[in-house]
Amino acid sequence: MRNPVAKKVTQIEPSGIRKFFDIVSEMQDAISLGVGEPDFDTPWSVREEGIYSLERGRTFYTANAGLKELRIEIGNYISRKYDLHYDAVHEIMVTVGGSEAIDLALRAMVDPGDEVLIPQPSYVSYLPCAVMADAKPVIINLKEENEFKLTRKELEESITDKTKILVLPFPNNPTGGIMTKEELEELVPVIIEHDLYVISDEIYAELTYKGRHVSIASLPGMHDRTVTINGFSKAFAMTGWRLGYAIAPKMIMDQMIKLHQFAIMCAPTNSQFAAVEALKNCDDEVAKMVEAYDQRRRFLIDALRGMGLECFEPFGAFYVFPSIKKFGLSSDEFASRLLREEKLAVVPGTAFGDCGEGFLRISYAYSLTDLKKGLERLQRFINKLQTE
């Protein structure tokens, strides 16, 4: 028989994150500090609106781009939060999570052989989405001494005459790193000089603990060069509602909507009605969650450093990225033994790119009680390694 599956798909490695959590799900008394999912409930008023929409029979298709009311509220939200000004009708679309928006943007913008610059460590979907769009992913290995931020020099050295897209993943998953306005401004002249476009994944924008998040799309010259990805999963604790959005110039957005139209049709209707409520009335709830994350962040950093682990201070998302190089184990070996011997799951840094070797991703999207229990197990494991 002819091979029924596409070669480019078989060559994509499965997510390095899932292996550990498939084991955890079947391991009694295991603790996970690895999943990037808020431990908070979706705000009650948002849940209530979702329930109400079902009770009212709002179970119809929406427009392909999403409820007009929701797109208008997204436009209002990004204007007051991030100084982004786009046409809600023609330049904003609602997607099934931020991941769909990433996939749509790449497929709408690249031709076979176009190069896509992907700074790593970073979210696991960028590289396979680029491959599935028939682009050539080009990895930029970020450095610990720069707090895993993208520098102008690193960007310049990675550009060729085939480069078309730069993925900008800040605030960063897995490192928690952010880029300030001044650091983004360093990149803009290079992007414009080489006529590049940017896909800026800002799903963690609200989870910024130092200053205010700055979107590169708000900087001079970048409005028409940027596709901004965001959504409701992280800031509003709405992971299971599967709702994201993309913001882009009309020329790009028209093609993204076309792909979305044929592949998805529209995002879940009751989720969209619930999201309107989230944007209108949940700033206070989000602020409380951010305050709690920040408390956990500071606690976790202090605890890890107290164990002798080197860890730069992350100011975004809900992850820390400590170094375990001193123990002489690979990231995968360390994480596998930690899970097997202490029943504690964290994610090896290599799940997010080869330059993540020697690091772990630990999430603080967990209660302080769970963090303390997990850290006790980590300390026992480190003590054991130091006596071997």
Rank of each mutant, 00 (worst) to 15 (best):
N383P: 00
V94Y: 01
K19A: 10
R212E: 13
P4F: 05
F262T: 15
I139N: 01
M222D: 13
F170I: 07
C266L: 04
V138H: 09
Q11T: 12
V24I: 09
P14D: 07
P112D: 10
L70Y: 15
S218M: 08
S363C: 11
E145M: 12
D87K: 08
F315N: 15
F327N: 07
G244T: 10
Y293R: 05
E156M: 07
L67R: 15
G97D: 02
H85D: 02
E333R: 09
Y204S: 11
R377C: 05
S15A: 11
L168H: 12
E73I: 09
I74W: 05
N64Q: 12
V94F: 12
K373M: 03
T160D: 01
G231K: 08
C129R: 13
M27T: 13
A275G: 03
I382F: 13
A248K: 12
N172Q: 11
K288G: 04
Y86G: 08
L127H: 08
P121N: 02
D22W: 00
N76T: 07
L385A: 05
V24L: 08
I203Q: 09
L168I: 11
H213L: 12
S32L: 05
K7F: 09
L371T: 04
V198S: 02
P128N: 01
F170W: 10
A287N: 10
M132I: 13
T160H: 09
P43I: 13
N281R: 14
V89D: 09
D294R: 02
N3Q: 13
W44Y: 15
L142C: 06
N173R: 09
E100H: 03
I51C: 02
G349D: 00
A105F: 01
I31L: 04
I301W: 01
T175A: 08
S323K: 06
I139D: 01
L279D: 00
V188I: 14
M253F: 03
L166S: 00
K343D: 00
M307W: 10
E291W: 10
L84H: 08
L67T: 12
V5W: 11
G244F: 07
S122D: 01
E182H: 14
T42R: 11
D83L: 13
